[in-house]
């Protein structure tokens, strides 16, 4: 069963931003990644799902119900963490969470305590006095306290330190095991790779690709940069899987996709002065997608 179904969803804003003809489905019990560079239309899509804004054309359903028509009914079972968390400044964390809980016909007191403990959130502080990371924690607790069946996260990790990020991921995995479906939007490929089953890639308001994360993982992209001792023949690194090869003097850089051993072997056979291997950022991987389209 599909928890989220998006059909040819289009939103035209006055300016050029917006999304056009976005379609994808999220199955029940899935952790679905929604990835794309900033400004690609991730938040717009999510806000359409939450009917904070309304589509120009196309439609979307959640739990099989139209998101516009049944907005308030659907939202009983949705937990949402916005990319930037803003809350009523003059409230204490505890009061805000209670206020949030008061919209659901459930007793969430116990759950609030549990979540606050896991995320190490001080409930007695004023929201105004919290750091960005702590505000994010409030958002996390706020989004999960009513044990929603669908969790929608928009850039949830920004501002969290690595330890908290880890705990948060564990928490999500636990929720997922309990049956929650998760839509996870991010511009960081590695975190989506870690957590998600499938992923939709969006760029400039259009879905470029929907694929299984396993496929993306097989396509293990690495960014190589190395400095050689002597100048190198340009064709030396022209092997399968090497993209965007650039050689400037003694500096060589390229993106590699495929069996990492073939490339380390290549590198081992030459004298190098320095070596960097990095995760390519999304832009660079998208370049690859674009090339494939053409």
């Amino acid at each position: 069963m599909n928890v989220i179904e998006i059909n040819h969803l289009t939103k035209v804003y006055g300016k050029s931003r917006g999304i056009s003809d976005v379609s994808f489905q999220v199955k029940e019990g899935e952790i679905f990644g929604f990835i794309g560079p900033n400004g690609a239309g991730k938040s717009t899509t999510i806000r359409l799902l939450l009917s904070l804004i309304y589509p120009t054309s196309g439609n979307a359903t959640i739990f099989g119900k139209d998101v516009v028509k049944y907005a308030s009914e659907i939202k009983k079972e949705i937990g949402y963490l916005p990319s930037e968390v803003f809350y009523y400044d003059n409230m204490k964390v505890k009061d805000l969470l209670k206020y949030s809980a008061s919209f659901y016909k459930k007793d969430c007191t116990k759950r609030i305590k549990e979540l606050a403990e896991i995320m190490e959130l001080d409930l007695t502080k004023k929201i105004d006095d919290l750091s960005l990371g702590n505000k994010k924690k409030v958002g996390i607790v706020q989004g999960l306290l009513h044990e929603p069946k669908l969790i929608i996260l928009d850039e949830p990790t920004s501002g969290l330190d690595p330890l908290m990020q880890q705990r948060f991921f564990d928490l999500l995995e636990k929720e997922n095991q309990k049956g929650a479906t998760i839509l996870f939007s991010s511009h960081i490929l590695s975190e989506v790779q870690r957590l998600c089953d499938r992923v939709a890639i969006i760029k400039e308001g259009k879905i470029v690709q929907v694929e299984k994360i396993r496929t993306l993982k097989e396509n293990n992209y690495k960014k190589f940069k190395l400095e050689t001792i002597s100048e190198l023949d340009f064709n030396y690194f022209k092997v399968d899987g090497v993209n965007q090869l650039k050689i400037v003097g003694k500096t060589v850089s390229f993106i590699f996709k495929g069996n990492i051993n073939t490339i380390t072997e290549k590198i081992a056979n030459i004298e190098i002065a320095n070596l960097w291997v990095e995760e390519p950022d999304l832009e660079e991987i998208f370049m690859h997608f674009y090339q494939r389209e053409e």
Binding site: L52, S72, Y80
Partner: peptide, 10 residues
């Protein structure tokens, strides 16, 4: 920006 809090409630 609290609309993103209030208006996603049921």
């Amino acid at each position: 920006k609290t609309a993103e809090f209030l208006l996603v409630k049921p």
